[in-house]
C-alpha cells in the first residue's frame, strides 16, 4: 500500500509546512495596525508598500551580492577540498578521517564560530598586531572588522562545509577508471577536472549551491554582527517589523523572499537535473 509509505511524510509536510505557509500567505493580505493589531481584511497594503519602496531593491541587491560572493568562494574552496579528499588521499580511511576533521568546527555553535573572528580581525586583534608589529602599517587596518569583508569571511567559514559534503559525495561515486581513461586519451589534469570531474559532480555542486545560497538569503544575524550593525538583510528587516507586532508587512516580505528563493532554486535545478543525476 503506497499510502502507508507516503502518508506519514505527507502529513508532516502538510502540518508543519503547508499549513504555516498558508497562514503566512493569508496574514500577508491583512491590514496592519500597530496599536490595535491586524485586521482580517483583504488588503494589498503590505505588498504595495514593499514594491514601492526603493529600499526593497537595495536590500535584495545587498543580500544577493553577499550570496553571489559567498557562493563563488565556497564553491571554489569546497570543490578543491572535496577533490583533494577524493582523488589525492589514497587511503579511504584517511580521507574519511580528514573529512571528519572538516566537521570539527561544527561541534561548537554558529554564534561562537562567528564571534571568534572578532578578536582576530579587530583593531587590536591578532592580524592588526602582526601588521603593526611587522611595520607594514602604523595604523591598524579598520576594514577587517565590521565590514562587508568580515561578513563574507564569516559566511565562508560557516557555510563551506555545506558545499564540501554534497560535492564529496558526488565525487566519491565517480568511477576512477574514467580518470584513467581521460589520462590515457591524453587529457591533462586540468582538462580532466573540467571535462570529466566537474560534469560528474554536477549534482553535488547544485545541492551545495542551493544550501549556501539559501542560508545566506535567510540570514540576519551574521550580517548584523559582523557588519557592526551597518548592513541589513531581507530577513533583518522582517525582524524589525515583528518587533512591534507588524505581522502583515513581515508576512508579505517573507512571501516575496520565499518566491525569490524558490526561483533561485528552480534556476539551479534547471541547470542541473538533480533527480536524474541521483537516479543515474
Amino acid at each position: 500500500m503506497r499510502i502507508f509509505q507516503v502518508g506519514p511524510f505527507s502529513l508532516a509536510l502538510l502540518l508543519f509546512f503547508l499549513v504555516p505557509l498558508g497562514v503566512l500567505l493569508v496574514v500577508s493580505f491583512f491590514e496592519s495596525d500597530m496599536i490595535f493589531g491586524m485586521r482580517a481584511t483583504f488588503s494589498l497594503e503590505s505588498y504595495v508598500e514593499l514594491f514601492t519602496t526603493w529600499n526593497t531593491l537595495w536590500l535584495y541587491l545587498s543580500t544577493l551580492k553577499f550570496a553571489a560572493i559567498v557562493w563563488a568562494i565556497t564553491l571554489l574552496v569546497g570543490f578543491t577540498i572535496a577533490y583533494f579528499l577524493v582523488f589525492h588521499v589514497r587511503s579511504l580511511l584517511i580521507a574519511i578521517g580528514l573529512f571528519l576533521l572538516c566537521t570539527v568546527p561544527f561541534w561548537t555553535s554558529n554564534i561562537i564560530r562567528m564571534i571568534s573572528w572578532i578578536p582576530l580581525l579587530g583593531k587590536q586583534g591578532l592580524i592588526n598586531q602582526a601588521v603593526i608589529g611587522l611595520g607594514i602599517s602604523d595604523e591598524p587596518v579598520a576594514w577587517l572588522l565590521f565590514s562587508d569583508f568580515a561578513v563574507v569571511v564569516s559566511y565562508v567559514h560557516l557555510f563551506t562545509l555545506f558545499m564540501i559534503v554534497p560535492i564529496f559525495n558526488s565525487m566519491a561515486r565517480i568511477d576512477k577508471t574514467l580518470i584513467e581513461a581521460a589520462r590515457d586519451a591524453g587529457a591533462g589534469r586540468l582538462r580532466t577536472v573540467w571535462e570529466v570531474i566537474v560534469p560528474l559532480s554536477r549534482s553535488g555542486i547544485a545541492l551545495g549551491s542551493i544550501f549556501v545560497i539559501v542560508l545566506v538569503m535567510g540570514d540576519f544575524f551574521v550580517v548584523k554582527v559582523m557588519s557592526g550593525g551597518q548592513r541589513a538583510s531581507v530577513v533583518s528587516n522582517i525582524f524589525e517589523d515583528i518587533n512591534v507586532l507588524l505581522y502583515p508587512p513581515a508576512a508579505a516580505s517573507s512571501v516575496f523572499l520565499l518566491i525569490v528563493v524558490v526561483l533561485i532554486v528552480m534556476g539551479v535545478l534547471r541547470v542541473v537535473d538533480i533527480r536524474k543525476q541521483l537516479a543515474g
Binding site: 572578532i118 579587530g122 586583534g125 579598520a142 565590521f146 554582527v225 557592526g228 550593525g229 551597518q230
Partner: peptide, 25 residues
C-alpha cells in the same frame, strides 16, 4: 556620518556594546 566612516559599529545587544569598549574599537 556613516558615509564618512564615523560609526565603527551600530550595536544591537548589551554584550556587543561592552565588547566594543573592552576591545578598544
Amino acid at each position: 556620518l556613516k558615509k564618512k566612516g564615523h560609526w565603527r559599529a551600530l550595536w544591537g545587544t548589551f554584550d556587543q556594546s561592552v565588547q566594543l569598549m573592552v576591545s578598544g574599537e
